[in-house]
Structure formats: structure tokens, C-alpha cells
Simulated scan of single mutants.
Amino acid sequence: MRLQDAKPQKGSKRRRRRVGRGIAAGQGASCGFGMRGQKSRSGRGTRPGFEGGQLPLYRRVPKLKHFPIVNRREYTTINVSALASLPANSEVTLDSLLEAGIVTTARGPLKILGDGDLNVALQVKAAAFTAGARSKIEAAGGSCEVIEAVAAGAQ
């Protein structure tokens, strides 16, 4: 089969309706649009979003701040400064932070933020790191490992 052999299915293509060509054509005079009114005029319909003069939806909805993000990802956040009290070369996860009492509630996967200083080498396993947090942990001799957020959130 070649491209020039491709044809539409029989009966799938219909000829376009030619309106205003006299009574015998079936759509003469008012062309099936009725007698008078907005929908019978040339050019036809209204613009998209027009609601008949009612204040349309795109003007009713507020445009600016404070709209919630749909499907927002919630993280349990902690700063690097809170990790400084942990013993050296310990493995830091959300569970270990809960046991140590540094984090009280798990609101989702763990995210490490870069505020503060860190002098202890730690093996940190979290769902996300900020660039500052990653550089401070690695500068202290530790390591950063990104774990799957779904697995951390299911704990």
C-alpha cells in the first residue's frame, strides 16, 4: 500500500451543506437558523467564554495570590544545623530522626535544607536535598543519598 492509495472509509466523508441556495436545496432563505435573533445573524455565534452577559467564569475567578497548588508535594523538612548534634558517621534517615526526637511528626518524605553549619560527617538518606545542604554535608565529609520519595512517604 502506498500513500496515494490511502482513501477514507466508504460513507465517512459527507459533502458540506450549502445553505442559502433556494427552497429546493432544503436550506433556503433562513438557512436553518430560524427567523431572528443573535444566533441567526451572519458571523453567527458569540466569542468563546461568552455567557450571555453574565459575568463570565474567567472574570469571576480571582487571579492573583493564595491559590493552592494542586497535588502539592509535602515534605518533612529539617535544616542542616539540626543534624550537627548527631554522632559522627551515623546514618540519617527519617526513621532515625524520629527515634532521636529531632523530628516529631513525619508529614511526608524527608527533605534536608541548608540553613546552619555542620561539622560532623554523616551518611544522609533523604528524598530531596537543597544545593546548599548537599554542599555542607559533603564539605563535612559526609555523603548524600537520594532515596525514592514514595518509599519514604509510606513509612
Rank of each mutant, 00 (worst) to 15 (best):
A139P: 04
E99W: 04
S85M: 13
Q9N: 09
R21C: 07
V80G: 01
A140W: 05
G101D: 11
R17V: 14
A149D: 11
P62N: 10
R14L: 13
D117V: 12
V80F: 02
R2D: 12
K125I: 10
A25E: 11
I69T: 15
G34M: 08
G114T: 06
Q123S: 15
G132C: 04
P109A: 15
L113I: 13
G45C: 06
K39E: 11
Q9I: 08
T77F: 02
V80K: 02
L55V: 12
A133E: 06
G22Y: 03
S90V: 14
R2A: 07
A126I: 05
A149K: 05
K39P: 01
S42R: 14
L113V: 13
S135T: 12
E74A: 15
G101N: 08
E91S: 15
D5P: 03
T105W: 01
P56D: 06
E51I: 02
L98T: 02
V70T: 14
F129Y: 13
D95V: 07
A133I: 08
T77N: 10
T104L: 12
S12A: 13
R36G: 00
H66W: 09
G116K: 05
S81T: 09
R59A: 09
G153E: 10
G116Q: 11
I112H: 03
Y75A: 03
G34A: 07
K13P: 00
P8R: 10
G108K: 03
M1C: 12
I147F: 01
L113T: 14
Y58G: 05
G11V: 03
G132R: 05
N71P: 01
S143T: 13
I102G: 01
